[in-house]
Design a protein around this nucleic acid. Structure first.
Length: 308
DNA sequence: GTCCAGGATTCAG
DNA sequence: CTGAATCATGGA
């Protein structure tokens, strides 16, 4: 945006170093859909009501925000898990005994779960069903542009549920949402009656949270799992999408398993930070970096039966 | 033109 | 309960 006035670049010191080259996968790897690479290689994004830019510069990881916005750095630090809570969880994952996870982890060292806003996460993944990441970004950008509140510099926030519920059909249709427009509208109508839904949901244990989310139109098991993981910080959630299905089938030999069975496998095999393991596998699978299992050595799961 | 996409919903059996 | 058809849209 030509009209944006930025502060100067400043170093962003996190408990854990972000390796150069990780930013693309961290910011634009299918967790958030609102980061864009600039011609100079930096990344500009909007999360919640914060506009920020990130890059690897002379002083390592550097950031800048719009002039006059006070809490951008604090918001950015929270967003990126500045205290390093996930570093310990990542270390505790079974990568030492799991050669597939080891490969995925070494392919994207430092990859973490972004601590996103629940509202924004729900909108993003309501748009995600049966769509590629690139197309989701287009839909989300259109929603912000046409229905979101201005944040300065030409940037806009994600629209409120009120704005979505009140939007003309023609406006929603112009966002390339397809049949997902009805998902957004239906969820908006249900949630405008519960202004504090995010706080109420955040107080629930994960199984109840999943159930509440799945009671919303357009939210099934996979979208609900993504929202708990990315929007509510439930690191134990293990979303099973097409890439994870392929990764577990090819690299772990779990062919023919249904998504619910794979989710159970993921949560028991990877433990408290299964969602983090999922993100390593997702990224590695999407970039064709996972090995293929020998057909003869598929693991013996504790619970589910593979066939029928 | 055909096929597919970080799936969910609806319907048939 | 499980599995298949259907959904709207854009890109390959």
């Amino acid at each position: 945006m030509a009209s944006a006035e930025w502060t100067s670049w400043r170093p962003l010191r996190l408990a854990e170093e972000v390796p150069a080259g990780l930013l693309a996968e961290q910011l634009d790897g299918g967790q958030s859909f609102r980061w864009q690479r600039e011609p100079d290689g930096s990344w500009v994004g909007v999360f919640g009501s914060t506009v920020a830019a990130l890059r690897h510069g002379p002083q390592g990881l550097e950031w800048r925000g719009l002039k006059g916005s006070a809490h951008a750095e604090d918001a950015l630090r929270d967003y990126l898990d500045a205290e390093g809570a996930q570093a310990r969880l990542a270390e505790a994952l079974p990568w030492r005994s799991d050669p597939v996870l080891r490969v995925a982890r070494e392919a994207y060292p430092g990859l973490r779960i972004l601590r996103q806003d629940p509202h924004e996460t729900l909108i993003g993944f309501l748009c995600s069903s049966n769509k590629r990441i690139l197309q989701i970004r287009v839909m989300v950008a259109a929603l912000a542009e046409k229905l979101g509140e201005p944040l300065g510099g030409g940037f806009r926030a994600m629209p409120t549920w009120e704005a979505i519920a009140a939007a003309d059909d023609a406006v929603l249709r112009s966002c390339s949402l397809g049949y997902r427009a009805a998902y957004l509208r239906g969820t908006a109508k249900k949630l405008i009656a519960r202004r504090r839904w995010a706080q109420e949901f955040a107080a629930l244990p994960t199984p109840a949270l999943l159930a509440e989310l799945q009671s919303l139109p357009g939210v099934g098991p996979k979208v609900a799992s993504c929202v708990t993981l990315f929007g509510f910080g439930r690191l134990e959630s293990f979303p099973v999408d097409t890439w994870v299905v392929q990764a577990l089938a090819d690299a772990y030999g779990l062919r023919g398993w249904k998504p619910a069975q794979l989710e159970q496998f993921g949560r028991t095999h990877f433990g408290a930070a299964a969602g983090l393991a999922q993100q390593f596998l997702f990224s590695a699978a999407r970039h064709g970096m996972l090995p293929r299992a020998e057909v003869t050595q598929s693991p013996k799961p504790t619970r589910p039966r593979p066939r029928k």
